[in-house]
Amino acid sequence: MARVKGGPQGHRRHKKLLKMNEGYHATRHKLYRRANEAMLASLWYAYRDRRTRRRDLRKLWITRINAAARLNGISYSRLISGLKKNNISLNRKMLADVAVRDLQAFSKIVELAKTE
């Protein structure tokens, strides 16, 4: 039984993968097998870190909201609780943006959250 090498399609597939790995160091951009290993690892890191980025951003938003809330004499948890009780639906991303860009508007939101 003869070995099947893949011909022009295999060559195209290899060239495509090596093109994806331009800019990599040493054998990771020259040798097909090492390039494939590097590419698979990089795709997995990209997949994983897209989720990690969401986690990190949420942490950042919460930190910013907490800092601004404490300037207005209320803790983060009390602020969120007050917003929920008063049916004010602002997500953390928007709250953090208001806290950073417009402290007066954030103070008004805090006042609404304090009223019961």
Results as ranks from 00 to 15, higher is better:
15 K>F: 00
34 R>Q: 09
15 K>M: 03
104 Q>P: 15
64 R>C: 11
97 D>E: 14
68 A>D: 09
107 S>W: 07
81 S>W: 12
13 R>M: 04
113 A>I: 00
32 Y>W: 10
62 I>L: 11
47 Y>L: 11
8 P>E: 14
2 A>K: 10
116 E>F: 12
105 A>M: 14
7 G>L: 01
116 E>H: 10
108 K>L: 03
104 Q>Y: 15
62 I>C: 08
85 K>H: 08
95 L>Y: 04
76 Y>T: 04
112 L>S: 14
81 S>K: 15
106 F>D: 00
42 S>N: 08
50 R>H: 04
38 A>T: 02
98 V>H: 01
83 L>R: 06
34 R>D: 04
35 A>H: 05
5 K>G: 15
96 A>S: 08
28 R>P: 00
113 A>S: 02
106 F>K: 00
10 G>T: 07
71 L>C: 09
48 R>I: 02
94 M>L: 12
55 R>F: 09
34 R>G: 14
86 N>H: 09
33 R>I: 10
62 I>D: 08
14 H>W: 13
70 R>M: 09
1 M>A: 13
1 M>P: 08
10 G>Q: 03
111 E>G: 09
78 R>P: 05
89 S>Q: 05
68 A>Y: 05
20 M>A: 06
27 T>Q: 13
20 M>W: 10
110 V>F: 08
88 I>C: 07
84 K>W: 04
22 E>S: 14
36 N>D: 05
10 G>L: 04
77 S>R: 15
69 A>W: 14
82 G>I: 00
